[in-house]
Amino acid sequence: MVQAQGSYYLPKPSYWPLVGSIGLFLTLGGFAYALVNKTDAGMGNMTAMYVGMAVIVFMLFGWFGTVIRESQAGKFNDQVDVTFRMAMAWFIFSEVMFFAAFFGALFYARQLSVPWLGGAGNNAMTNELLYPGYTAAWPTNGPGEVGGKFETIGAWGIPFYNTLILLSSGVTVTWAHWGLKKGNRAQLILGLLATVVLGFTFLGFQAHEYFEAYTHYNLKLTSGIYGSTFFMLTGFHGLHVTLGATMLTVILIRCIKGHFTAKHHFAFEAVAWYWHFVDVVWLGLFIFVYWL
C-alpha cells in the first residue's frame, strides 16, 4: 500500500468510456426493441443492436489499445499494478456471485420447489388440487411437462472429457506462466497455444453437445426447469469460456510480440485467473448439473 505516490499514473481525459456507454445503450436498447417487437415471424428490427455491438468492439480495441500503449511506455508502476490486480480479483468475485444466482435457482428447484409441487412438507393439498398425479423427481420439466418428454446428457461422456480438457488447460496455462517467469519463450508460447487450443476444443464439444440435445434428446431451453437451469448455467459458462479463450488468444499474440517481461505481465495473470475461475465454475457444473 504505502509507496511513493508521485508516480501513480493518472490518465488524461478520455472519450472511450462515453463511446462504451453509447455502445452499451445501443446494444441493449436495440436488443430490448427487438424483443419487445418480437412476433411469431421473429424478432423486431435489430439494426440498433448490431450498430451498438460494433461500437463496443471499436471501444474495446481503442480503450485496450490505449492501455497497452501506456503499459509498453512504462507508465504503470508497482502501485498501479496492485490496483489492476485488486480490480480483476473483485471483478471475478462479482462473476462468482452472478453464477451463484443461477446455482441458487438450481438448488432451490431441486431441494424445494419441485418436492413441494409433488406434495412434500405441508403441500399435500397443493399437489392434490393443482397438480394431481405429479410425482416429484429430477430431472423434471414440471407438472405441465413443458417442452415435452426429454432425455438428459450423461455425465461420463462428453461432459467428462470436457472436464479433463479444462483441467488440463489449467495446467498448461500455469506451465506457460512458469515459462514466462523463467524467461523461457518457447515454453510460454507453447503452453499458451495449448491452452487456447484446449479452450476452443472444449467449446467445440459443448456446441456438439447442444446440437445433440436439441436434435436427439429433445432437451431444450424450453424443457421446463431442467432445461432452464441446464442451458442457462452451461450457456453462461460457455459464454465465459468463449470470452476467456478470446482473451487468451489476445494474450498469446501479445506474448509473441514480446509485450511481457518476467516481472511485468499483469495482463497475462489476469487472464490466467479468469481462466481458473471458468475452470472452477465448470467443476461445479459437472458435479451439480451433469453428475448428481
Partner: peptide
C-alpha cells in the same frame, strides 16, 4: 428475461419453477 422471451420456466410452476 428468458422466462418472458425465451421460454424458460424459472418462475413458472407448470414447468417445475416457482
Amino acid at each position: 428475461l428468458t422466462d418472458k422471451y425465451f421460454g424458460t420456466s424459472f418462475f413458472h410452476a407448470a414447468g417445475g419453477g416457482d
